[in-house]
Nucleic acid binder design. Structure first.
Ligand SMILES: [Mn+2]
Ligand SMILES: [Mn+2]
Ligand SMILES: [Mn+2]
Ligand SMILES: [Mn+2]
Lengths: 227, 227
DNA sequence: CAAATTTGTTCGTTAAGCCTAACATTTAAG
DNA sequence: CTTAAATGTTAGGCTTAACGAACAAATTTG
């Protein structure tokens, strides 16, 4: 059974696979049709049709109303797409001076049209980076994803001192806000407290030392590990 | 009358416009449906339909069986696409270490998906280059094409000393052959003779001094100016 | 547990871009 | 000038990815 190259898949199929894989990268619950539709900006019926087609190609397993799971072949394609996306983001920031809030949309399109050769050249030029500008791990050329660790800041215990490992790149405006606050991958901070009904998490950051209040969406977008 | 951004056109429409414009860049005769079909690798009926659609959008003028001419709006889009294509080729060679025979196909795809922002960043990083790796002029961001001069080597008078201004990038294999021969934009040479029925042009190149015999396809692909 | 709501699927339609086959026009030869 | 060849156009179909409407299943609520 030959594995077709990613370039033989439609852009839509590539986006589906990448999204299915990404959904389980930081949390274990498998993705649903309606969540996919919302993220991709299409109707659920479109996704339902698309998933059925992917199942026919042996890239996902899915029975009607059942869960959506990648096959080994589907996962290989998905990881290849994630690698493309994250290398592109890194290249745009490191070589072309983009800021981290500008790169996601550009990479979302380019990931489908750059050749394997171009990916290799960017990877070489960048010195085989292992994390993208948002802290997300870049899978290797061999297709082995590097498994990330971490929890959402909103779930980190008060009193702990942690380092930021990744910040979700989903919302450019939020990324610009984090830039203002001086929050980025590798920033260290101490979780001061969670105020549950206000949905506010307070953290203390050094250099300069300061306290920052973060709402639920912000503290969900930031992932941390103990240091 | 607003001019829509290039990104609002289909990839096919972008390719059509670029091809129509390019056809008259180095020779005056307007392009035909069958030549377009051959270059684009599609059937003439496909091109005929496509041209009709472009005419409906006000990007070309064309009556059935008539000639194909760009409108001002069509020309603006075409020049923007040529700029994209040539900046991409230059970027791939100068920044990512591609050789000049590898870049055309990659640029042919990427030109449709890179953003205006990315084009600007590449242009800045490259220092606003005016020629691509094949010697073709890169139109400015203002949309003003730089008018190239030159004649095909096959049409240059024997005895003249000339400089290569451009080499057609249509055939990668020929480009690799020219690399072996040491022929590139700005190479100076003296046209020794044309042997008409053999269809061979002999030229003398310096450093190291050597004579080179070029067949018709090669001497048609090379454009020169008097020095 | 039954009803209401949410979620997912199927089906018919549309728009692009491509194809082949048939036909029309223009150009080139005799 | 008339026919033959080359070139261009039109019409009808195919595929893909999208949509909405109608329907089915699963989940939540009362
Ligand atoms: Mn994408
Ligand atoms: Mn990212
Ligand atoms: Mn080119
Ligand atoms: Mn193209």
């Amino acid at each position: 059974m030959d594995v077709m190259p990613v370039s033989d898949l439609s852009h839509a199929a590539q986006n589906y696979l990448k999204l299915i894989w990404s959904a389980t990268e930081w949390s274990p619950a498998p993705i649903t049709v309606s969540v996919m539709a919302e993220r991709l900006g299409v109707r659920p019926s479109t996704v339902s049709d698309g998933i059925k087609k992917l199942a026919g190609q042996g890239l996902v397993t899915h029975a009607p109303y059942g869960s959506i799971e990648l096959t080994d072949a589907g996962r290989a394609h998905a990881v290849a797409m994630v690698r493309r996306h994250r290398l592109l983001e890194t290249f745009l920031v490191d070589v072309l001076g983009y800021s981290w809030d500008e790169v996601h949309d550009e990479a979302e399109v380019l990931e489908h049209t750059v050749s394997d050769t171009l990916i290799d050249r960017m990877d070489r030029k960048l010195g085989h980076p292992v994390r993208d500008p948002h802290g997300d791990p870049i899978p290797g050329a061999d297709g082995r994803p590097s498994m990330p660790k971490g929890t959402q800041l909103s779930a980190a215990a008060a009193g702990n001192t942690v380092a930021i490992t990744r910040i979700s790149d989903a919302d450019p405006q939020m990324l610009r806000y984090f830039t203002e606050l001086g929050l980025a991958p590798d920033t260290r901070l101490t979780v001061t407290e969670h105020r549950p009904y206000a949905d506010v998490t307070t953290v203390r950051v050094h250099e300069p030392e300061r306290d920052i209040d973060l709402g639920a969406s912000a503290s969900d977008a930031i992932w941390v590990v103990a240091v």
